[in-house]
Simulated scan of single mutants.
Amino acid sequence: MNFEGEFELDGVPPEKAWIVLSDPIAVRDALKGCRYIAPMDDDFNFDEYEPEEGLETLPDADADDVADRAFVAGQKYAALMQVGVGSVKPQFETTVTINERDGDDFEMLASGGGDASGSSFSMNSGMRIHELEDGGGSRIEWWTEADISGRIAQLGSRVIKPVSDKIVNNFFSNIEQQMTDVDEETSSGVTDRLRNML
């Protein structure tokens, strides 16, 4: 199944949109049903991992903390995500690898997959941030190719697509609010410093 879309952020320049979308904690907080997104190694255990609570995001977080935890190309991340599709509400143990991160063109590519009771998926996805033609904001383009199998796949695209659209729309609505807060309350000096760190 293919999913794609775009949305615009008036008044939020690509540099600030990129910083927010580079922060796993900001992404986690904007993604309903996501318990954590954490760097993982070969010994990572989904059942035993306890995410750190109360982590701040911009504009309240320290710039160094945000830079230290930013997504890294080549790094694998564990994500625990619960998705409700009809009467099925599986909790997916997901592994995602950041394949590419280009801070000049504001592009990030990722791949991964996950399993839940009786269902699994694999995906390739990406996003690219463009400056609006009038220079007054950003246009974020995103896409995902996903292969879904098991109980959820049996429900069919007629059921899956609206649920996926709702998750994506909620995510971008939440992330837009974070970006607006960052744009209004974070000084350009902090943004420039983060851009250099990332």
Score class of each variant (00 low, 15 high):
residue 32 K to V: 13
residue 177 Q to L: 14
residue 53 E to Q: 12
residue 60 D to W: 11
residue 39 P to T: 00
residue 114 G to E: 00
residue 180 T to D: 06
residue 73 A to Q: 10
residue 86 G to E: 13
residue 118 G to T: 00
residue 31 L to I: 12
residue 12 V to I: 12
residue 35 R to K: 13
residue 40 M to E: 07
residue 194 L to G: 01
residue 35 R to S: 09
residue 114 G to M: 00
residue 102 D to N: 14
residue 50 E to N: 14
residue 23 D to Y: 08
residue 157 S to M: 15
residue 176 E to Y: 03
residue 103 G to W: 00
residue 95 T to Q: 13
residue 60 D to H: 13
residue 188 S to G: 07
residue 12 V to G: 02
residue 64 D to W: 10
residue 76 K to M: 13
residue 168 V to H: 01
residue 64 D to H: 10
residue 154 Q to H: 02
residue 195 R to F: 03
residue 95 T to C: 12
residue 30 A to W: 04
residue 72 V to H: 11
residue 112 G to L: 03
residue 53 E to H: 08
residue 51 P to V: 03
residue 73 A to K: 11
residue 86 G to F: 14
residue 168 V to M: 08
residue 91 Q to P: 05
residue 198 L to N: 05
residue 197 M to H: 10
residue 193 R to C: 02
residue 176 E to K: 13
residue 74 G to W: 02
residue 181 D to V: 14
residue 28 R to H: 10
residue 198 L to E: 05
residue 156 G to P: 05
residue 29 D to G: 06
residue 3 F to Q: 12
residue 95 T to E: 14
residue 7 F to W: 09
residue 30 A to L: 07
residue 56 E to H: 12
residue 156 G to D: 02
residue 15 E to G: 04
residue 108 M to D: 00
residue 85 V to M: 04
residue 12 V to K: 00
residue 135 G to E: 01
residue 94 T to N: 02
residue 27 V to M: 06
residue 144 T to P: 03
residue 82 Q to P: 08
residue 20 V to C: 11
residue 18 W to G: 01
residue 147 D to T: 15
residue 171 F to P: 05
residue 138 S to I: 01
residue 87 S to V: 10
residue 143 W to H: 11
